[in-house]
Amino acid sequence: MEQVLKLRNLKVVFPTDYGLIRAVEGVDLDIFHRECVALVGESGCGKSVTSQAVMRLLESPPALIRVDALEFDGRDLTQCTEQEMQEIRGRDMAMIFQDAMTSLNPVMTVGRQIDEMYRRHNGDSKKEAREKTVKALELIGIPEPRERANSFPHQLSGGMRQRVLLAMAFACMPKLIIADEPTTALDVTIQAQVLKTLRGMQRGCGTSLLLVTHDLSVVASIADRVYVMYAGKIVEKAPVKDLFTSPHHPYTVGLMAAVPRLADEKKQFTQIPGTVPSPVNKPSGCYFHPRCQYATERCRQEMPRLKPTGKDREVRCFHPLSAGGEQQ
């Protein structure tokens, strides 16, 4: 399979007054053609920093970035100038953020903003661009697209704005789209619409997707492969179905148990004890050990490595769980 993105050993550090924040500690990512890869983890684990580093959008300083390899579509991005990067972003690689309001220009109609994408990257005329814009809006399910194109962002609802962002991201048929919490701000019924659209467009356009989210249920509904991140490190990597049917890392197990389900017992929630460690003061050994019921002396001392456990699967744990949630 054709590889779209290859990231090796990404490290990002932020020096602050109260110490070094090791936001990302040696992350590897592979994304193949037409694949939807999810990067999932809790707040502060380094998801956004990783995705910004991939697009080279992370400002340095303050960030100190080190990476062994960052290849996109066979091209070494570490060698690209800022101007080359700007061309790549938008044409070959696009980004969708959580908050559509901040990524859209409030004083320009949404139609013109999408037109711009076509004009800038395809060199289309005004008229050609508008025709394409209307088609794109129609495709993502906006009623009366020709009229809607003349609306300003604030005149649209949150779900519509988010879909406008989708239209912009897909405008130039990029090879890769990075979507950072694309549905987090949306209502459940709108979220269902947007995810369906996103999945449909991704399949239809043959784009690869890196989905950044904290929501496992979103992952379950659209991803093909998943990376689970905790405190700056990947702790588990697996095809989506394998992950959900048999999670190996105790953290993944805990996260899954924390998703409330309709079938669950009443008046009782399964909890993971403790909290995510402070980024300036991570524990020794495995970062998850203070919250892990299986932790042993070794876990307290030594950081486990990511080890293969099956086809396309890796887990960073000395005591991974097997299929039935049993200790191996």
Partner: peptide, 25 residues
Amino acid sequence: QALIAAILDIDFSEEREIIVLPGDT
């Protein structure tokens, strides 16, 4: 019914119908 159906599930064992409501509030 639609709200209940819109709960994204993480269970791969069960097939569920998802009702996607058209339009916005």
